[in-house]
Simulated scan of single mutants.
Amino acid sequence: MADDAPDNDESLLESAGELFGDRLQLANRYAALLADTGVTHGLIGPKEGDRVWSRHILNCAVLAELIEPGARVLDMGSGAGLPGIPLALARPDLEIVLLEPLARRVDWLCSVLDELDLPVTVVRGRAEERMVRREWGGADVVTARAVAPLARLAGWALPLLRTGGRLLAIKGSSAAAEVTRDGAAVHGFGGSPPRMVQCGGTHVDPPTTVVVVERTASRGRTPEARRTGGRQR
């Protein structure tokens, strides 16, 4: 299934059934909302409405294969609920928290979750805020998609993880360059050397590229980490 395949492609529909199982109907409803009010609210582009499965939902849902059973997952900068909502639909065993700073996006997420009747928590806030770290830190996994370059992302995400927890950052063509460039900054925030993995090869084409960083220690920020840090916008 190519990335630009139409959403009525037979292999795409088959993959959706395999990933979501008896929750496929809910996934279909989420896709419809994403293509409708998700577009009008500016959460996805107007030209993406007819390809929400191939460009958004499936390539997020396959992240589930990297997450252990029963994990608490914090989806940072969740936006349209990506990848958090597809993960919640594909993996009902996971405890999902969607972290989003913008009120209009939070309102949209809450309305979608109410309609789908999904037990997912929505928190309005930024990852670097003290309250967020105090209330929602200690996650097993932090996910992020199209949030920030890896150096900044690690500075926000790693304090939200327990020691041994992992950042799973969905990345595009910049992934390899970011892994090479930002390794020292990631180390300064207490992270392992970042590595690239690909997942979902039997369901999405091309596979989803994920940068994985484990929180190895609670570390003070090095001068390099301080230079590359910043605030979410």
Rank of each mutant, 00 (worst) to 15 (best):
M1D: 05
A2S: 12
D4A: 14
A5M: 09
D7S: 07
E10D: 10
L13F: 02
E14R: 10
S15V: 04
L19C: 06
F20T: 11
D22V: 10
N28P: 00
A35N: 07
T37L: 07
P46N: 14
R51Q: 15
V52M: 09
S54G: 11
R55K: 15
I57N: 10
A61S: 07
G70V: 11
A71R: 06
S78D: 08
A88M: 08
P92R: 13
I96A: 08
V97R: 00
L98E: 04
P101V: 06
L109W: 03
E115C: 03
L118T: 08
V120L: 10
G125Q: 04
E129M: 13
R130N: 07
E135R: 15
V142P: 00
V142Q: 00
A146F: 04
A146Q: 07
P149W: 03
L150A: 01
G155D: 02
W156G: 01
A157I: 00
G165N: 10
L168P: 02
A169T: 05
I170A: 14
K171M: 10
A176K: 13
H187V: 05
F189K: 00
G191M: 05
S192V: 03
S192I: 02
G201K: 09
P207E: 14
T209M: 07
V210T: 02
V213Y: 01
A217H: 09
G220Q: 11
T228S: 12
R231I: 03
Q232L: 14
